[in-house]
């Protein structure tokens, strides 16, 4: 099976590592992807207002392209995954949004949320399997104490994202374990870093980041991993005096698979 791949805008510029190491790792794992032609930016945030349709159209066009190819849509960036999943859910369950969006888009066939949106981590867990992944590791990250930083976008709202337990997630810890490293569970791994306000209110973002870093260090993390460019920026640039190294999870994956 070939997966349609949706990198999203930031992975082409500031978050190239997230993208490049994902591609290399997938090749090593024998999973075939094809970047979606003419994909459009998902919009960055999911529009919460019930009457916002226009801001969802770019996501709908992307989802419809994937449907026409008959392939699942593979996402990597937390924000893109969040937005695409929720817009897809709207098209599946919200008759009003579905009707108005389809009337405007006038695709050959109406889009009703048929595309399966799958996050890279879910692919590793459910398609590759963490046991198989562990077998393919050539360069185990032995002795490294790594904390997973989930943030909010992958987990909440859990009834729509259905990604993991929103209060006690485990998929990234299982991933870290598969790479041969030691996952460190720390309480603030599912608390928000303040992504949206990092442009308008740096001091508020700093307060959030400091709590996350303190919690991670208290539990013994030497390094954090994330799937989100916004979190990466915030944790790196808006941290106060106390900092911690943050990497994209795909970089660790490539390292362990020996393709970095």
């Amino acid at each position: 099976m070939i997966y349609s791949y949706y990198p999203g805008c930031t992975l082409k510029t500031k978050a190239k590592e997230l993208d490049i190491y994902a591609r290399k790792s997938l090749e090593a794992l024998g999973i075939e992807i094809e970047e979606l032609d003419n994909w459009q930016c998902c919009g960055g945030v999911y529009p919460l207002a019930k009457d916002e349709i226009a801001t969802k159209l770019s996501s709908i066009r992307t989802l419809n392209q994937a449907k026409e190819l008959g392939r699942p849509l593979l996402t990597l960036c937390s924000a893109c995954h969040h937005v695409l999943t929720r817009v897809n859910n709207d098209m599946k369950t919200n008759g009003d949004i579905n009707m108005r969006a389809n009337n405007y888009c006038a695709f050959d066939e109406p889009y009703n949320g048929e595309t399966q949106v799958i996050h890279f981590l879910t692919l590793l867990k459910e398609v590759v399997g963490f046991d198989n992944l562990a077998k393919k590791v050539v360069n185990p990250l032995k002795g490294r104490k790594i904390g997973a930083y989930y943030g909010c976008l992958l987990l909440r709202p859990s009834n729509e994202l259905a990604f993991d337990d929103p209060e006690n997630p485990s998929i990234l810890e299982d991933f870290i374990k598969a790479l041969g490293a030691t996952p460190v569970v720390y309480p603030f791994r599912n608390e928000c870093c303040g992504g949206y306000i990092s442009v308008t209110n740096k001091s508020q973002a700093t307060k959030n980041v400091d709590k996350i870093v303190a919690s991670a260090k208290y539990k013994g993390c030497e390094q954090l991993i994330t799937a989100c460019p916004l979190c990466m920026y915030n944790l790196n640039e808006n941290a106060g005096a106390d900092k911690i190294e943050v990497k994209y999870f795909t970089e660790l994956l490539a390292e362990a698979l020996g393709v970095k």
Binding site: P187, F188, E191, A214, S215, Y218, K219
Partner: peptide, 10 residues
Amino acid sequence: GQVGKVYESD
């Protein structure tokens, strides 16, 4: 009041 989160620290 209700409790939002219980976590370990110090």
